[in-house]
Amino acid sequence: MGGSGRADTQTEDAAPGSRPRPRRRLLRRLGVVALVLAVPVGGLVWLFQDDLFHPFGDARACEGSDAPLSDFPGVGNAPLPDDASDVHYFTQDGTAQVSFRSSRIPEFLHRSGLLAEGAPPFDKQDGGAYGLGDGEPDRPQGLCGPALRGPAWMYGGTFVSVLVERSDINPDAFRGPAARAVVTYRSP
């Protein structure tokens, strides 16, 4: 019994810092657990960053949008072309502005009813020149992504209007191989 009492006495009389206190040990363990959990949580945040940091979980939505694009009925009447790429949109106060690139702009204009079937794309009856010089950029306020570059042509309707890049070489063609368009949908 004397031997066990002596060991207890030696432990209590040991110099401070020679053996970690239970509180310090607990803090070290919590630090290790936090580091171990930080790696997978950071990985998940990186993996799902588009869903976490974009409005409505849609990577195409620009910051400040107040409604998802699916809330605009005009989009269903004039859906984006199948080959639409680099799509971005901004919604605010019943208006949606959608920017995209496509090689099928004439088909889109016919489907949306902004260009009469068989009409040339740059007929002044269906549209008009938009005041942008060659290569001059334009992007509506709030819309993110690349800017539309001039020269441009504007088509207008009651609930849908379209601004499209024209070729800076051939005035009777859209910019190729794919032109950028900015479509504005207004709620009825």
Rank of each mutant, 00 (worst) to 15 (best):
I105W: 03
P106R: 04
E107T: 12
E107C: 00
R111P: 12
G113A: 13
G113I: 00
G113W: 02
G113L: 02
A116E: 14
A119N: 10
F122I: 09
D123Q: 14
K124L: 15
Q125A: 10
Q125K: 14
D126T: 08
G127A: 02
G128R: 08
G128F: 10
A129C: 02
Y130E: 05
G131N: 13
L132K: 14
D134W: 00
G135T: 14
E136H: 15
P137A: 15
D138G: 10
P140C: 13
Q141S: 09
G142P: 04
G142D: 13
C144H: 12
G145H: 05
G145N: 09
G145A: 02
G145Y: 00
P146M: 14
P146Q: 09
A147E: 11
A147Q: 11
R149G: 14
G150S: 06
G150Y: 12
G150N: 11
P151M: 12
A152W: 01
W153G: 01
M154P: 03
M154L: 07
G157Q: 01
G157F: 07
S161K: 05
V162E: 07
L163V: 09
L163I: 09
V164R: 09
V164Q: 06
D168G: 04
I169M: 01
I169N: 02
N170A: 12
P171R: 06
D172L: 15
A173R: 11
A173E: 07
P177N: 05
A178H: 05
A179V: 06
A179G: 11
R180K: 11
R180C: 03
V182S: 06
V182E: 00
